[in-house]
Amino acid sequence: MSVVFRLEAPYRGEYALHRLTFGGNGPAAVAMVAGLHGNEVNGIQALNLVAGMLRVMRPKRPVHLLPCVNSIGADEARKRWPFDDRDINAAFPGDPEGAPVERIAAAVMDATDAELCIDVHSGATTVREHPHARVPLSGPELEHARAMMLPVVWRRRGDRYEGGLVGAWRGAGREALQVRGGRGLALDMDDATTLARGLVRLLAHLGLISHQDTGTPSHDTDHVQDYRSMAGGFFVPEVQTGERVVSGKLLGLVRNPLGGEPIEEIRAHKAGMVLAVRVYPMVHAQELVVRIAEDAT
């Protein structure tokens, strides 16, 4: 483990950006980043599981892991950089002479100079997400995502990658994708483990390690439907992430938080897999309550 960047942190010593590197010499093949958002602990756990595997597998080329970029945010269970409440993921590609988050962002870019870069996130604190990869509609990232065999591959238009670390990596000419799973502020062990297994499968697919882990091909789709509550209330889900649903399936009920009378039934319009479910029940009108990765038609 090495410290690739330091920043004086008043009252508490310093901020240090740690990088773990596994494998031989030469240019790095893969870089994985987690914890840009300090409260997204599933990504941190996933990379630590990957680190445990790489300690014994010794990849043929260097693999960089940055398991917890926003360590001060993680200390305080906060998504953003606590000092000035800025989102590090909104500061890319960064500036080595700029504000603290811009310096950290620039350091992350420098520390992840690899052919393939992966950014690992959790869902929001109010929403649990089933482990999935977000990739462009075509290209090498799509093949990488399929090799991971995460439960879902969400193919998205290129203009959905304008900002953030993935956008900056792609702007720098690197192959890049994002994987997500679980929710913020909570350790969802199953989701973190699924993410880690997918990342290790990818390293094996790239020929960097020898590893056999059979998996099921992903639910691969570019049709993802958000279901939102029409009215505010108390959302009680009737499904779980990863569950298969058919058209018409009851996804959940919005109830009156004071008395429990039903306000709204939310049902699936099409068959698919539940990609995300709201776990914090107080819901405003038009907030996301369920997301379905629809079956290809």
């Binding site: 920043l7 004086e8 942190a9 008043p10 009252y11 901020y15 000092f83 000035d84 002479e97 700029g98 504000a99 603290p100 811009e102 310096r103």
Partner: peptide
């Protein structure tokens, strides 16, 4: 008053 390197 609390500043980091790079703080405005």
């Amino acid at each position: 008053p609390v500043v980091y390197p790079g703080s405005l």
